[in-house]
Design a protein around this nucleic acid. Structure first.
Lengths: 381, 381
DNA sequence: AACATTTCCGGGAATGTTCCCGGTAGTTTT
DNA sequence: AAAACTACCGGGAACATTCCCGGAAATGTT
């Protein structure tokens, strides 16, 4: 009945329990356990590999590997044969295996807080442009302004063994342990826009303080005096810097910033509308609003228009970023433009640099310049 | 001087050429070649692996693997020990190795033609939402409306062994061999928006024909008769369908579409402006323009306004997609709204379905519904 | 003719996992 | 007390590559 696979015995066999759903046997003469292998699984379609090519051509996989990478130590004839067959079989190198042995995946991870507005997609375009040219792929994650998601994103990207990370932080990120952990792992980390002041990394920013200062100064020059500021969350350095620029511009004009005119909020469109309404409903409403970014400013304009507040006569509005909508909305939104695509390109370049030089690159901060774009929302005719 | 590493002989050694920059020797007594290994490379920081944990704990890697995956056949005590140490060492599983053995990477690739406008990023948000919930990562590529780049993207994604592809084609894609090749490889392929009619795959679309028909009918009902159409490139099915809807709506009203009022173009903003100007400068200009999408319609409105053409009195404009700008521009843009996020979610769901069921899913086309959003650009007061 | 060099190729380790399966010890059943 | 079972664990193959290094033959040099 039951043969021992080793000694071919039949009568010295006894049962030895069910294990993992299969019967197990014990052969007393061999003193060994055994069970019967289940049917080999169908082995679904498998991609063409280097050994497939080698077998077909009757050569070794080493040779195929060399031929494919066009290295030396390869006869032109065999190289051509390999290349041709690879083409014919539509061979695609397996980046997983490659990455495993080289511990390099040629992909970099990017984590951005959101995808809804103009800004981040445009940065990504810039970054991808230079990375692609350098032979890198990009893996993009949205943290959706959630700290938890951001941590998960970092983990996922690291699990994929990306060669580096380009990140703009969540507004909720206070704990940066998940980024700190990357240092020990030797993974280049580049922040842009929403950087992390506590970490010594490469950074790409614009001069937020200066931009805000100029924007508010412009409002003052236009004669506005009761200038409100809808700021971003204090957790973000850009929020603090822009707010500081706002404050200092007022002070430089001998004005004291009024607490009731400064609101910090979480950057959601919904809250933007609520606070815009709030400001305009104040007993003594502001005559100008400097918003932390364009999406916010846009909401302010929409609310104001809906309430019949005239722009710029009753209320001036200034934003930050030069979102394309700024040029389309009426009146046009005065805004601090920043080189968005260039931010992405610069971040990518910084990555490439550290990837090339390794550890010895010293972290540096690239500050790109802003420009005040003056449109109808802040200039009375 | 030179010892043979095998027989320790000294005098039977002769040189045997330089190979790969290193001196090679020949030992006559052993009849073998040898050379001296160069210094082992410094072996840079390496991520914590399962064997590190195993070594530390004095157990085997199999056990660690089981513990980490919380499988059976593991003692609660050892599991805890492994888990704790993994936490402490910040162990991240190597997805490359995982993918190699499982031939599954838990990532899906997505190829979109562009990133500049509202549409594609929003689809991505939707797709990522459901994929992330299912434990998948997303790898996003922009083809930048270039056939070459699209082909390269497919290759890159396949090299990364993504588990599936979600694609909206380039307007230049006429040859679809690179997609056809995926069938043999058993990689699920889902098209959305710009689908590929020649391939039997899952698809997510809206009823472009119907949407266009309704949009143009609306214009006719509003009394417009000389209705132009700025269409997308004929290579895209959505362009053809929307154009057909336009044509049929006119015909249903007993009107013959005039060739000079129908323009097909490449969807760049620049060309949109040129053709908008062209139409408005016609000796007998149209009294309404139905644009293939909102970005085009927006350009038309901007050009018209710049020329002093009153909207909707002199010219009505209707778009397609309900880009957020449509609600912000003045007058508001009448447009055919499509459930953008839902498109992404649906595409992701279709992928998950085929990933679960394997080969036996029969390709199907999910058609989502559109809605005509009527705003000021097409309704005379 | 003996040695040296060059050219090309193959074998096998290593990468970090999972998976299969047998081993061992202790417990329960007959 | 033997037989059967359970609970854990470890060894080693497999995955698709790259890399190192030695083998073999052809060519060049004294």
């Amino acid at each position: 009945m039951i043969h021992c696979p080793k000694c071919e015995q039949v009568d010295s066999i006894s049962k030895a329990g069910m294990v993992r759903g299969k019967q197990r046997y014990y052969c007393k003469s061999c003193q060994s356990h055994f069970s019967f292998a289940d049917a080999p699984k169908p082995r679904s379609k498998h991609q063409v590999t280097i050994v497939d090519i080698a077998r077909e051509l009757g050569i070794s996989k080493s040779t195929v590997s060399r031929a494919l990478r066009n290295q030396s130590d390869i006869h032109p004839g065999t190289r051509k044969a390999v290349m041709d067959l690879a083409q014919q079989l539509d061979y695609q190198p397996n980046l997983l295996a490659y990455g495993l042995v080289k511990s390099r995946t040629n992909t970099v991870g990017m984590i951005v807080p959101e995808f809804h507005h103009y800004f981040f997609p445009e940065v990504i375009i810039g970054a991808q442009e230079v990375l692609q040219a350098a032979g890198y792929n990009l893996m993009i994650c949205q943290s959706s302004e959630s700290y938890q998601t951001e941590v998960a994103n970092v983990k996922a990207l690291m699990a994929s063994r990306v060669d580096g990370l380009i990140v703009s932080m969540t507004s909720q990120t206070n704990n940066v342990d998940h980024f700190k952990a990357l240092e020990n792992k030797g993974v280049p980390l580049i922040f842009f826009n929403r950087i992390c002041p506590e970490l010594e990394t490469h950074r790409v920013v614009v001069d937020d303080y200066e931009g805000a200062f100029r924007a508010v100064t412009h409002l003052l020059e236009q004669g506005y005096r009761r200038i409100a500021h809808i700021a971003g969350p204090a957790s973000l350095l850009i929020s603090r810097l822009r707010q500081q620029g706002y404050t200092d511009a007022l002070m430089a004009y001998g004005l004291e910033p009024e607490p009731e005119l400064v609101i910090t909020y979480d950057l959601t469109d919904e809250k933007a509308r609520i606070y815009a309404k709030h400001l305009l409903d104040l007993p003594e409403p502001p005559d100008a609003i400097f918003a932390v970014n364009d999406p916010t400013a846009i909401q302010v304009i929409l609310i104001a228009k809906a309430k019949g507040v005239r722009i710029p006569e009753d209320l001036a509005v200034v934003g930050f970023s030069n979102d394309p909508i700024s040029a389309i909305i009426e009146p046009g939104l005065t805004t601090v433009s920043q080189p968005v695509g260039e931010m992405g390109r610069m971040a990518a370049r910084l990555f490439l640099e550290t990837a090339r030089l390794g550890e010895q690159t010293i972290p540096r901060t690239e500050t790109l310049s802003t420009e005040l774009i003056i449109r109808g929302s802040s200039v009375k005719k």
